[in-house]
Amino acid sequence: MNTQPDAPRHVVATSADADTVLRRLAREGWTARSGFALPDPAWDVAAHRIVLHGRIADDDTETVALAVLAAARGAGVVAVCDPESAAGRALIDDLSRIGAVHRGTDGADPVASLIPEQRALLDRLAAGDTIAAAAAAEFLSLRTANRRIAEARALFGVRTTREAVLAYLRQRQPE
């Protein structure tokens, strides 16, 4: 079992936001490298505490693939891109399959960091569904639903699913 903490995954809008995140990660012991290609031939680079960073253009699927591969190999990722662009949506979606993705500099708004699957699950749990029923309604396996909810708990900094649902309800924007 991997005892390394989860590598950070951030998608930010500006280079200034990326600099803020990178400074914080450097204080936490991460080594920043520009670009998303990993030179290390070893597959698992988590122990090296490397965080790769750079800008991803709106239609740059190749760089998205490099960033996702780096994250899958255990590197941290800080990507500057428009989260509403095709590349930004693809990046956030693919990174969220690996683990929690933070949008912005400090995670101050955990609701903004939730992916659509997490929002849908939390909405269903808030309406009284069980995790199994919510997973089935969202066409997710129970294991995936449990992972998504665990990531949401981590984003909200709570221990229980009930606390995550309550935090989500308190912090989400009214529709």
Rank of each mutant, 00 (worst) to 15 (best):
A79V: 13
L122Q: 00
D19Q: 10
G29M: 15
G54C: 05
E28R: 15
G35Q: 15
Q118K: 00
V158Y: 06
I115C: 08
W43T: 06
A126Q: 02
R23W: 03
V64D: 02
M1D: 04
A100E: 01
A150I: 03
L69Y: 12
I92A: 12
N146V: 04
V11G: 10
A133H: 04
A18T: 09
V64Y: 07
A112L: 06
D129W: 06
V80A: 14
A67C: 11
L155Y: 00
V77N: 11
R119M: 01
I115L: 01
I131L: 15
V101K: 00
T130K: 07
G29L: 14
A126K: 00
R119I: 03
M1A: 14
F139T: 04
A100T: 02
E138D: 06
A72I: 12
V11S: 04
V80H: 08
R24A: 14
I131Y: 10
T31D: 13
Q4W: 14
P5V: 05
R170C: 03
S113V: 00
S85H: 08
V77W: 12
V21D: 06
S15L: 15
D59M: 01
D82F: 11
F156M: 01
R162A: 13
T20M: 10
P41V: 13
S85G: 04
A133G: 05
V158N: 07
V68H: 06
A154G: 05
D129V: 06
D129G: 03
A32L: 04
H102R: 05
H10L: 06
L122S: 01
V158F: 12
A13D: 08
L114M: 02
I149K: 10
G74Y: 08
E163Y: 09
V77I: 15
A133S: 07
L95W: 04
L69H: 14
T31K: 13
I92C: 13
R24C: 12
A135G: 05
V45T: 11
G35M: 15
A137L: 08
A112G: 04
I115G: 06
T160F: 01
D40A: 07
T63L: 08
Y168V: 01
A13H: 09
Y168P: 01
V12C: 12
R124C: 02
A13W: 03
V80N: 09
E175C: 10
A87L: 09
R33I: 12
A154C: 10
